[in-house]
Amino acid sequence: MAFRDPPRPATTNHKNKGIGCVSQTLAVTAHRLVKKFGGRRVVDGIDLQVPAGTIYGVLGPNGAGKTTTLRMLLGIIEPDEGERTLLGHDRPREASDQVGYLPEERGLYPAMKAREAIAFMGALRGLPWGVGRKRAVELMENAGLGYAVDTKIRKLSKGMAQLVQLLGSVVHQPDLLVLDEPFSGLDPVNQENLEKLIRGEQARGATVLFSTHVMAHAERLCDRLAIIAGGKRRFEGTVNDARGQLPMQAHYTPERDDPGIARILPADARHNGSEWIFSVPDGGIEDMLRLLTQSGHGVTGLSIERPGLHDAFVKIVGAKALADAEAEAL
């Protein structure tokens, strides 16, 4: 049997202040993707560029179009408009053996043993059965599930079965791992195990693309992310880029707290227990601290922190749009 080199992922060129063109390898691209269901644009002109070797998150509220976008990228459904490439292929399904996919809808054969289920999923991607069974044991042991390799799926907890399906999506060591809401339904321990697995896949050289509506996972894991709402991309960049959409936040604890303190603090100041939280003014915080000290309120605690990704997400998407999307998904 003759072997040929796999097709190259797409590249994009960027001018770098006269130094020349710097080529960046892209594992996934999307240009103006549109998908309509019943006349409604569920995905409305989304652009994505996922650099190879990165962990890339697609964030959005329920009903934002995340799952539909991933399915179009994988070639499971066809876009009504737009173009996409997957590992250099214009026809994404030609790259299916190089991809691991965990869909939002979980499903395994309940009568299969865990080891066989993982090996079976690898075999669907061209992995020899014996290799798959051996790797299945190693993967389960690394995930803390070594004791359950011969347990039938029907006897596993929901979280354990979900991890088994996840291991089945990586057993063939794919170049691209696509995970749709992978943390949904997992307890905190298994969420931590999943984060370790995602980082391990990146360390192996894989690109990881996952969707989520939970900011904490994206904040810890993502090299880059896209925020979508209402089927449109609202932001693309790093976590710090997103957090930079908001001013720095001051956490201030006075020596004496009374209603008069609100007249000194910025208009967006809010009380949270014993402290006040507010945006740092453009001119800095020194003049305000001087007024607080002179008025007798004093300072017992002060820290200045970058806003969290959740706050940036609300700012980018809009509180009303976020609430409307969540209500529509119920």
Score class of each variant (00 low, 15 high):
residue 253 T to M: 05
residue 253 T to L: 05
residue 253 T to C: 03
residue 253 T to D: 07
residue 254 P to V: 04
residue 254 P to K: 04
residue 254 P to H: 04
residue 254 P to D: 06
residue 256 R to K: 14
residue 262 A to T: 14
residue 262 A to D: 11
residue 264 I to Q: 06
residue 264 I to P: 05
residue 264 I to L: 15
residue 265 L to N: 09
residue 265 L to I: 05
residue 265 L to W: 07
residue 266 P to Y: 09
residue 266 P to H: 08
residue 267 A to I: 07
residue 268 D to W: 02
residue 268 D to R: 02
residue 271 H to Y: 03
residue 271 H to G: 02
residue 273 G to K: 11
residue 274 S to I: 07
residue 274 S to H: 11
residue 274 S to C: 02
residue 275 E to V: 00
residue 276 W to M: 03
residue 276 W to S: 02
residue 276 W to Q: 03
residue 277 I to N: 02
residue 277 I to Y: 00
residue 278 F to C: 01
residue 279 S to R: 01
residue 279 S to G: 02
residue 280 V to W: 04
residue 280 V to C: 06
residue 280 V to T: 06
residue 280 V to S: 04
residue 280 V to R: 02
residue 282 D to N: 12
residue 282 D to L: 10
residue 283 G to S: 11
residue 284 G to T: 10
residue 284 G to N: 12
residue 285 I to R: 02
residue 286 E to W: 02
residue 286 E to I: 04
residue 287 D to T: 09
residue 288 M to C: 07
residue 288 M to V: 09
residue 288 M to Q: 12
residue 289 L to I: 12
residue 289 L to N: 10
residue 289 L to W: 07
residue 290 R to A: 14
residue 291 L to K: 13
residue 293 T to D: 13
residue 293 T to L: 12
residue 295 S to K: 12
residue 295 S to R: 14
residue 295 S to Q: 13
residue 295 S to P: 00
residue 295 S to I: 00
residue 295 S to D: 14
residue 295 S to E: 15
residue 296 G to L: 08
residue 296 G to Y: 10
residue 296 G to H: 09
residue 298 G to V: 06
residue 299 V to H: 04
residue 299 V to Q: 12
residue 299 V to A: 08
residue 299 V to N: 09
residue 300 T to C: 08
residue 300 T to S: 14
residue 300 T to Y: 06
residue 301 G to C: 10
residue 301 G to S: 11
residue 302 L to Y: 06
residue 302 L to K: 07
residue 304 I to C: 13
residue 306 R to D: 03
residue 307 P to I: 03
residue 307 P to D: 07
residue 307 P to Q: 07
residue 309 L to V: 07
residue 310 H to S: 13
residue 310 H to F: 14
